[in-house]
Design a protein around this nucleic acid. Structure first.
Lengths: 206, 206, 206, 206
DNA sequence: CATGAATGAGCTTTCATTCAT
DNA sequence: CATGAATGAAAGCTCATTCAT
């Protein structure tokens, strides 16, 4: 009991609770009970409740960005159709979301209630993902595959809205029509919508 | 002694607080202080803190759906281009959102933390809006203006993701590139994306 | 139970506890138990534990200074020997101390441990008493009954040391040789020492 | 690994903290941080927090009494004026206080809050000093230089009050009129007050 | 002797809710 | 309907002390 790394044990215990119940309804006593350590142990490893959430979020961001950008860089220099490139990015993201549901839930469903620091850490993670979209769009614009009427940032904002909202429905809305699809299908649909809008959902694209 | 209806006074006081601080961080004592009534008065009008939020949300839903469907029904039977019909719906929605920011914030940014009943009321409001999208899409499919590869509900889900996320960025993200646009421009952009995707953002559409 | 003024009830309960156990060892739970009210009631009337102590100290200062200065003013304009005037002041002070032992204990035996605000409130009360001494000495100096070699403030500081330390021994040191004297005798001794030092303790003065 | 004796290191670290913050506000973690050792090391050298304070107080008492009585004994059998003898004792005491401010602060400003054992150790140290005063007074009474109306203990009690209160003002009250004097001047003033009271502060004595 | 993570009892404080007036 | 003092369960957090290494 003394040999395990309790800091990690606590984070592992906290994430599912935070994802399901949110910040306020997750009590420190819940976390330590789940982790099997004493209440004081929590405060040895983390300054306060806010701290463990920030720690989890930062660690999660590191992993997520690593996944996104390592997948992404492989495509650099490729001459493939942009849809392929974008689909790879989306599929990476959807796969990551699927296998890290709790983290994703924390990211997408933490509301106004939690502390400013937490909200701002979440915002910065989402912003980083949006930046990956913006990068992709910028390259497509350079290659004249997408019109440059609007800045890549504006387009990325709309794309991010679409993606995050769709992930939310896909993973967390019970009974949603998206729930039955797998990550690859989700990516394909998103990219179709991304490039062609609702009209793009023809049999030839789906 | 108060000629105004205190129930309404309390709701008017509560909405901005709830929107800004969220459910848990809005204390009943904050609400009554803002409303200028005593703590006990709150509990004469509302069973508990959850009740006032539900009341606000239900009242808000009534107004919102009324606005959406009265705007929408005017278009029923029209032979206009679907993009026009859809743009009217979007513009109605964006305008409503713009003049009801607090309610919109409550709707879009209430997270996992609040009570189940509240989350489910919010979900049902959002679902109702999504249904309006679905109706529009269904008519377009009937008129063969949109492919029927996917059900109107699936397409509406993606459209709703796009719309809600975009409203969020537009109204609540400081410094976002969307923040400078007005409701009409937002509607135009959304519809463009809706029907043509990123490729639709040509100068001829913007 | 609802009709009594609980703020006073709490203060009355707190003073003896604070006097006997000091700030940290007096728990809020002790106070409310003694007062017979719920824990929350304490925090309705006082912002925190520090606040009740400050309230008690300020109220005590008001009473004490009132007693001292109303006794003192009666002597204004008197041609009596300064020793008489001084003895009246001392006797007033010792009598007050005797009938307000708890308050006096709070004043004299609150140490370095308590909060800065409390220490500074205590210091200011003691300073106010010292000022009464300084006033008396100044008048004696004007009448050339006391040498003006040192400022009245310096002399008052020494006199205050003597008086506060003596009260402490008199009231709170078990087994101290002073414990058997009454307020009038204490005042006489102090004044004797004040004006004549140890050599003044001759049979003719005592 | 540490060549210095950690027990002493801990005591040296603890004294200033205890003097400044008092018993409760000085945390064991503060002490070990200041001392540069681990928390556990503290508990190898001292049974608990109370123990280190008692140890410091006892060691301090040993030094102090040694200083007082070695100075004092030199005067034994002297035929000098009692004021000289007393002044030597006072000067010894004030000098010691001046070069051991932290210890003195612990002695004079530890209030009701700390443990019974600590308070009683402090009381016994102060009592021991008072005994030195009593001895001096007794000899003066034997030589008929001071009246025997009151017991040497009663007179010593008042003298001790004067001395301890004056030291407190001299060393620890910011802005006090005594603060500018040095130990020798303090001793002279105290002895003047001791033997002649306020009237003794003539130019011939100052 | 030394370490530092672990412990848990106990503290202050918060706040939704109740209720006598 | 309105008041606002009273309630008390429950929360976050502290810190002296223990103990395996």
């Amino acid at each position: 009991m003394h040999t395990t790394e309790n800091q990690q044990v606590l984070m592992d215990a906290a994430l599912p609770l935070l994802a399901r119940k949110g910040f306020h309804k997750t009590k420190v006593s819940d976390i330590v009970k789940q982790a099997g350590v004493a209440q004081g142990t929590f405060y040895w490893h983390f300054k306060n409740k806010e701290a463990i959430v920030l720690h989890i979020l930062k660690e999660g961001e590191r992993y997520l960005l690593n996944v996104i950008y390592s997948g992404y860089r492989k495509q650099v220099g490729s001459l493939n159709d942009m849809t392929t490139s974008s689909k790879d990015l989306m599929q990476t993201l959807f796969s990551y979301a699927e296998s890290n549901k709790d983290y994703m839930q924390l990211l997408l469903k933490t509301g106004q209630d939690s502390d400013e620091k937490i909200r701002s850490q979440i915002a910065s993670t989402l912003q980083a993902i949006e930046q990956a979209f913006a990068n992709n769009i910028a390259r497509a614009q350079e290659l004249h595959m997408l019109p440059a009427t609007y800045s890549n940032h504006t387009l990325a904002a709309m794309l991010a809205s679409l993606v995050f909202g769709t992930i939310d429905r896909w993973l967390f809305r019970e009974g949603d029509s998206l729930a039955t699809l797998n990550a690859e299908e989700m990516a394909r649909q998103i990219v179709s919508f991304e490039f062609f809008g609702l009209r793009g959902f023809t049999s030839s694209h789906s």
